[in-house]
């Protein structure tokens, strides 16, 4: 079972851009162990930046995979840039807006913008930017002993991909 860090795909411009969202809930187990140091009162649970990076990697990875109908094994190869300006706390939502910068047989480079939405007011605010490179692992690493089936875009992805993914044979 792959740990999914996005809740839904909300926009898809084929070959170009994909947008996904995640709602951050206090019920998420990892938040019980990740706090700020409480500069303005009690310590506040924070969404870890590393998991927001994973959420963006999943969003951008889906975009890259969708270009070739999920026939390639798309593997995160390199995080070239990841900057975060602000925290995200329970009750807020995260938006991952990914676009393809460059793509060929070997892989793709992507750019992403991470935003947060505060339901108490304020709308969407950009809080981070990423540059991530993905490799088409079969094309770049032939000779590795990889499974035949596409372990990257498995069954548990289908629930959030909806119409993006081709139906099972």
């Amino acid at each position: 079972m792959r740990w999914l860090w996005i809740d839904a795909v909300i926009e898809h411009e084929p070959h170009v851009r994909l947008v996904a969202v995640k709602n951050v809930s206090l019920a998420e187990e990892h938040l019980q162990q990740h706090f700020d140091d409480g500069p303005d009162g009690p310590a506040q649970p924070l969404m870890p930046a590393s998991l927001m990076l994973e959420g963006m990697a999943q969003t951008a990875g889906i975009l890259v995979g969708s270009v070739r109908q999920f026939s390639e094994k798309v593997i995160l190869a390199k995080v070239t840039q990841a900057t975060f300006d602000s925290d995200v706390v329970p009750g807020q939502s995260i938006k991952y807006d990914a676009c393809i910068d460059r793509m060929d047989d070997a892989g793709a480079s992507t750019k992403g913008i991470i935003s947060r939405f505060d339901h108490r007011g304020g709308g969407w605010q950009e809080i981070g930017r990423t540059e991530i490179i993905f490799s088409h692992v079969d094309k770049n690493r032939s000779g590795l002993d990889l499974p035949e089936h596409n372990f990257v875009f498995g069954e548990n992805f289908r629930a959030i991909l909806g119409g993006l993914m081709p139906k099972s044979p």
């Binding site: 190869a77 390199k78 070239t80 910068d101 460059r102 070997a106 892989g107 480079s109 490179i133 490799s135 770049n140």
Partner: peptide, 14 residues
């Protein structure tokens, strides 16, 4: 590393 070569190719193109 090997994956950096892909990054370098993309950046040279740009």
């Amino acid at each position: 590393e090997s994956i950096d070569f892909l990054d370098i190719v993309f950046r040279l193109e740009k």
